[in-house]
Design a protein around this nucleic acid. Structure first.
Lengths: 124, 124
DNA sequence: GGAGGCGGTATCCCGAAGGATACCGCTATA
DNA sequence: TATAGCGGTATCCTTCGGGATACCGCCTCC
């Protein structure tokens, strides 16, 4: 990845840095995961992500809108319905999210196994 | 990804949440990117990551050691040489980092194109 | 006409992450 | 013997991401 030249390594660092800059924080990617299930209303998202407060969610949604990952649509039913949905551009994040999800699952198993081993070692 | 059941969506959210929990912050993944070039000494890493301070780097390295992504090796040359290298387990992160790098590059191009378009629109 | 849902906002507050700067003891090298 | 590199630590300070709690106006449904 970074093994050939000094130059290339720098590029990798910068690219990853750029990505992290946009996707910072605990919540943005989670919101996108939830919305990848289909358009959702504010309170639906709020309920889907345990622990998020409306203030924070509101801010994250604004950020995601600015970065054009999410679109806020207003349907003038009565009462007005507001729906958040992913933009086509957000598809480009699918691989990152997929990788994180797979890794998260795998890491949980890894930790479980490790703790089991440690407990076994304590016994002997 | 999350499109079939409520249950499965929750699992995705939690897996991604777990991953983000471990990989939080601006620096951890950057350190791993740099080390993926091969073992490095403290000051080498410090120089490779523009903007990181020794205090922060020191803390990140300790975190990464705890999570078993990085090993700190002491070679008793004179003077003592200290080397940080990736563990085999850190390989599991390769896909996340790869995805971030690709996305970061692509996103930069996306932004450039967008700004060009906006400037063109201003002119007309 | 009260309860409850919707889409948020307002206010207050805290802790951790991270930046700035300086410096330590040790060693080699000039 | 002074300078420079190494591997960090110490101290101080600021920012801000994020939590807690409350509440708003609007609407519908009972």
């Amino acid at each position: 990845m970074c093994a050939t030249s000094r130059e290339e390594c720098n590029n990798s660092v910068n690219a990853v840095r750029d990505a992290l800059y946009v996707l910072n924080g605990k919540w943005k990617l989670l919101v996108i995961v939830v919305l990848s299930d289909g358009p959702k209303r504010f309170k639906e998202i709020e309920r889907a992500i345990e622990g998020i407060t409306p203030k924070v969610l509101s801010k994250e949604l604004r950020d995601l809108e600015l970065n054009e990952f999410v679109e806020r649509k207003v349907y003038d039913a009565v009462p007005v319905q507001i729906s958040y949905e992913l933009t086509p551009y957000s598809d480009s994040l699918k691989e990152i999210i997929g990788a994180l999800r797979v890794w998260g699952e795998q890491h949980k198993k890894y930790l479980l196994k490790k703790h089991k081993q440690q407990r076994a070692a304590m016994q002997s």
